[in-house]
Structure formats: C-alpha cells, structure tokens
C-alpha cells in the first residue's frame, strides 16, 4: 500500500484517538460538580466532536479530494450542526435559568 497514504491514515487515527482520550479528561473535569450544568464543558464537547467529525469526513471519507461542492456541503452541515446544537443549548439554558429565578 502507498506508504505516504498509509502514514497519513495512521496519523489521522492517532490524532482522533488522542482527542477522544482527552474527552475522557474533559468529561471528568468538574469532578464533584458533575451534577451541575457546565457551559464550558458542553461547548468543548460539541466543538471537539465536530472537529473530529470534520477530520473523519476530510481524511477517512476523502472529501479533501472531492469536488468543491461536496467539500462545501459537508462543511456547511458541520457549521449548521455546531450553530444549532450550541445555540439550542445556550438559549435553552438561559430560559431554564430565567424560569428558575422567576
């Protein structure tokens, strides 16, 4: 097998695995406060997940070699997912906090 491509796939796998193991640490960061909402951990979890998804799409799914339209469509979905998930979380938590205070 093409050794350059082989090395690239291994590097991608190692980077994705390292990021995933980092999430083990991120998920345990708040320790005793794990039962409280944490916007930083949530934002980090979603952003890291979307970075991993984009790496999978670009590298493993070979979208980096695909026509520009497919590159743009996949990137558009990643951005849409990020904005909608983070937006729903922050808007929802704002309403939830306001109801709690009310």
């Amino acid at each position: 097998m093409n050794s350059g491509f082989e090395k690239r796939l291994i590097v991608v796998l190692l980077v994705l695995s390292a990021i995933t193991i980092t999430q083990l640490g991120v998920g345990s960061l708040d320790g005793q406060d794990a039962l409280r909402p944490n916007a930083a951990i949530t934002s980090g979890a979603i952003v890291i997940a979307l970075i991993k998804v984009r790496i999978i799409i670009r590298e493993f799914m070979e979208v980096r070699h695909a026509p520009v339209l497919l590159c743009r469509l996949t990137d558009l979905w990643v951005v849409f997912a990020g904005v909608s998930l983070l937006g729903c979380y922050f808007v929802g938590m704002t309403f939830s906090t306001a109801e709690g205070l009310g």
Binding site: A34, I56, F60, L85
Partner: peptide, 23 residues
C-alpha cells in the same frame, strides 16, 4: 460501502459527546 461505514462512525462521535460528555 466505505462511505456508509464512515457515516456510522461520525454519527457515533456526536452521540458520544451529547450523551456521555456534555453537561
């Protein structure tokens, strides 16, 4: 076939973040 399999992978990456990690 590979494209379908990768889709299973990246969907799980998001499910993992939302069910196990987020606060």
């Amino acid at each position: 076939c590979a494209t379908y399999w990768h889709t299973i992978d990246f969907l799980w990456v998001l499910i993992f973040a939302l069910l196990y990690v987020m606060r």
